[in-house]
Amino acid sequence: MGRSTPRKSRQRSGGNGPRQVAASDYESDTAQYLERREAEAPTANANPQPARDNTELSLRVLRRYRPKIQSILAVAANAVAYHFLESTQGWEKHGVEGTLFVCDQDPVITPTGHTLPHVCVFILNRRSMDNLVIDLLNVTDCEVVGELIVFRLADEASQKAPGEEDGSAKKIIGLWLHADESNTRELHASLITAAWQQARQAYDAYLQAATAAVVANNGLSSGGDYAGDYGGGKRLSMSELFCKNGA
């Protein structure tokens, strides 16, 4: 039996120089394939659609829950929600942790023609399917207390903690944001409080106009209570405004 032909060894450069290795068939075929694809690529579409970025993908996710979200104003990578317990006068975790989005939504149009800015704070909960959404129009007070952004909700907007079975309302919610070298917590707190102030100013202007309309239509004194339907000379509550706007 003859000896088998010895396998040729790959060439190596002398000394300590780099080893010269011939390109494999896979590498050479891939290069030719890419060159052929570039040569055959159509040129009719001179303005191709840009690739979807993280903002677009986030918007698609958020709109599954809130279709009226128009844009994302700010993002915080890590936020934790707390609610204030009247019984203990202390804070307890709300059961919501995750990425926080400050979102601009379709504005709310009042019967008096006022346009109310409609910003919300949205936390995509990584702990469960229960997300947290705070409409700033439903917040009667917003301030920074220590490391928390504190929201006092209107009675009609009060929420239960996820998994809570009793009917106790959570009227005060605090959001803790991770602090970093870029002062993310301070920047987000400033943005949220400014958006809330703008929303409340617009809402107060609507209430004044609605009250004036009630007085003009019914000849009532300005000291009365005019909550309820605007139809027939009455102003709408915030929840009724949301219903009429499909919010």
Rank of each mutant, 00 (worst) to 15 (best):
N47Q: 13
A41H: 12
R63F: 00
P67F: 00
N54I: 15
S58F: 13
Y65K: 00
A51N: 06
Q70P: 08
S58H: 15
S71N: 14
E56L: 15
S58M: 11
P42F: 00
A74R: 07
A74Q: 10
P42N: 02
N45S: 07
L73F: 00
L73N: 09
L62E: 07
T55Y: 08
R63Y: 04
L57R: 12
N47G: 15
T43I: 11
P48I: 01
R63W: 01
P50L: 06
L62H: 06
T55W: 03
R64I: 13
P42I: 00
A41S: 10
N45P: 02
L62V: 14
D53S: 10
A74D: 09
A46K: 12
A76M: 08
N47T: 15
R66Y: 02
S58R: 15
P42S: 01
N54H: 11
A44W: 06
A76F: 04
S71D: 14
A51V: 12
R64G: 09
L62R: 06
A77C: 02
P48R: 05
A51R: 10
E56C: 14
D53K: 11
N45R: 11
R66E: 11
R60E: 13
N45Q: 10
I69K: 02
A46G: 04
Q49P: 13
I69C: 04
A44Y: 11
I69G: 03
A41N: 13
Q70E: 13
A77L: 01
R63A: 01
L59T: 10
A76Q: 06
N47Y: 13
R66D: 08
E56T: 15
Y65W: 00
A74N: 10
Q70I: 14
D53T: 09
P42Y: 02
Q70T: 14
A74K: 09
A51I: 08
Q70Y: 03
N47R: 15
P48L: 04
P42R: 01
I69L: 02
I69P: 01
L57T: 11
S58I: 05
S58G: 03
V75G: 01
N45E: 05
A74H: 07
P42C: 03
Q49I: 14
V61D: 01
K68M: 08
S58W: 14
E56K: 12
I72V: 12
V61I: 10
V75K: 01
L57W: 05
L59I: 11
